[in-house]
Amino acid sequence: MPTDRRTVLADAAITVLAEAGIRGLTHRAVDRAANLPPGTTSAYFRTRQALLIALVRRLVALDQAELQATGERTPVPRTAAELAAGLAAFAERRLTGEGRRRTLARYACAIESVHHVELREILVSRRNVARQVVRDFLAAQGLTDADERTVTLLTCVDGLIFDRLVGGGGGSVSAAEIHRLVTAALH
């Protein structure tokens, strides 16, 4: 558990946002979620916008750390089936437990970023080892547009996660669905 008070508050804010939505994200709700005295959150983040920025920065840091670790422990897939299995496992992590909480918060922040450019700049896609694994696999298949196909494939997987998260398809992603996306990217 993080000991830095700002990190504790940002983590609590992610939980509040995931559970109560953007309207439920208040300084008091974060204080309660962090089990801290009333006024603590506003002492560290004076405005709601400052709280949102801290939340988004923490969310991106957690996501990047997860993607980095995943990419480092995952060899470049040798087959489309291996890539599909890896992407399906990733999608499943994003739909369950801690991953689900962060995914709900991420989508709420993405919508909010339409009106707040500073949030959009923090949320912008970043390079990471996991993305590179997908790109390297596609390049090894002889695709000359591996960078573009990587973006397309990962955007499709993200769309599938979003669809399952909001209720379409029962909340899980099958390896077969992911395999179809990978196959389409290879063609």
Rank of each mutant, 00 (worst) to 15 (best):
G71T: 02
A43P: 06
R73A: 11
T26C: 05
A10K: 13
T79I: 02
P75H: 08
V16S: 04
L52C: 12
I14E: 06
D63H: 12
L9K: 10
A85F: 02
L52G: 03
L59D: 04
L62W: 04
A34C: 06
A50L: 14
A80D: 07
H27W: 11
A18E: 00
I22R: 15
L95N: 01
T74S: 09
V56L: 08
Y44E: 13
L62Y: 05
L25E: 00
G21R: 05
R32A: 15
T41H: 04
T96M: 04
T15E: 13
T79P: 00
E82R: 15
V76R: 06
T70I: 11
E98Y: 10
A50E: 15
R57C: 07
R48T: 08
P77L: 09
P37W: 01
T40E: 08
L9E: 02
G71P: 04
A61R: 09
T47H: 07
I22V: 13
V56F: 08
E66L: 14
L59A: 12
V60R: 14
L17D: 01
V30L: 06
G24W: 01
I22G: 09
G21L: 04
T96A: 12
E98A: 15
R100K: 14
A61V: 11
D63P: 03
D31F: 06
G99D: 00
R78E: 11
P37L: 13
R100N: 04
D31T: 15
G99Q: 04
L25G: 03
L62T: 09
T74V: 09
P37D: 09
